[in-house]
Amino acid sequence: MTRTIHGRVHGKTIELDEDPGVAEGQEVEVQVTLITRSSRQPGEGFLRTEGALADDTEWDDIMEEVHQARKHERRPPTPDLGNT
């Protein structure tokens, strides 16, 4: 039987997150693989690239074009149905 069970090391003892399902005193072989946890927070990738295009005049022109395009009215004009 081979299973993967996570746990934590406390000195020479490994505390498992769940019952391994073997009899007390049963001899087993243990293979330890370190689990690295990412310390990154959501959105951190964006923050690491912040300012990358700060001095790019071409990018400034593109962003200004986008800004101006967003200012325009997007709704279709209301048709004149007359006053009857």
Rank of each mutant, 00 (worst) to 15 (best):
H67R: 04
L34G: 11
K12W: 01
T33V: 04
A54E: 06
P42W: 12
T49G: 11
V9T: 03
V66G: 00
G82S: 12
A54P: 00
E73I: 08
A54M: 01
D55W: 10
H6K: 00
W59G: 01
T84M: 13
Q26T: 14
S39D: 08
E18D: 07
T4F: 01
P79L: 03
Q41P: 10
D19E: 06
S38C: 10
E44S: 12
F46R: 13
R48A: 15
R40W: 10
D17A: 02
Q26D: 10
S38Y: 12
F46C: 10
Q68K: 15
V28D: 08
T36Q: 05
D61G: 07
I35L: 07
Q31D: 11
V28N: 05
A23Y: 04
G51N: 10
N83A: 15
E64V: 14
I14L: 02
H6F: 01
H67E: 08
L53R: 09
R48L: 14
E50P: 00
F46N: 14
D55L: 07
T36M: 05
G45H: 07
G25C: 05
R37P: 11
L53F: 10
V28F: 04
V22P: 08
N83E: 15
E44G: 09
D19R: 00
G43Q: 07
T57V: 12
T2C: 12
H72Q: 12
D19P: 02
T2H: 13
V9Y: 02
M63N: 14
L81N: 10
T84P: 09
A69N: 04
D60S: 12
G82E: 12
G43S: 05
D55Q: 13
R74G: 06
D55P: 00
R70I: 00
T36A: 02
E29I: 11
Q68S: 15
E18G: 03
E18Y: 02
F46Y: 14
V28C: 05
V28S: 03
Q26A: 09
R74S: 07
I62P: 13
D80K: 02
V22F: 06
R37A: 06
E27Y: 05
Q31M: 08
E44I: 03
G11N: 04
T78S: 11
A52R: 12
V66W: 11
P76A: 14
M63G: 10
R70Q: 06
E18R: 03
E29R: 06
D19A: 00
D19I: 04
N83Q: 15
H67Y: 07
H10Y: 03
T78H: 10
R75F: 14
T2D: 15
T36V: 12
L34E: 14
V32H: 13
Q31K: 09
E50S: 14
P76I: 03
M1D: 15
R37K: 13
T84R: 15
E15M: 01
T49H: 13
H72P: 13
L53M: 09
T36K: 02
R40E: 14
R75T: 15
P79H: 05
R3C: 00
Q41N: 13
A52M: 08
S39V: 04
G11M: 03
I35E: 09
W59E: 08
V66A: 07
R37S: 10
L34S: 09
T4Y: 00
G21M: 05
D17Q: 00
H67P: 04
P42L: 11
E73D: 08
D17I: 03
K71H: 07
R3Q: 09
E24H: 10
H67M: 01
D56V: 11
E44Q: 11
M1T: 15
L34Q: 11
I62H: 11
D19G: 02
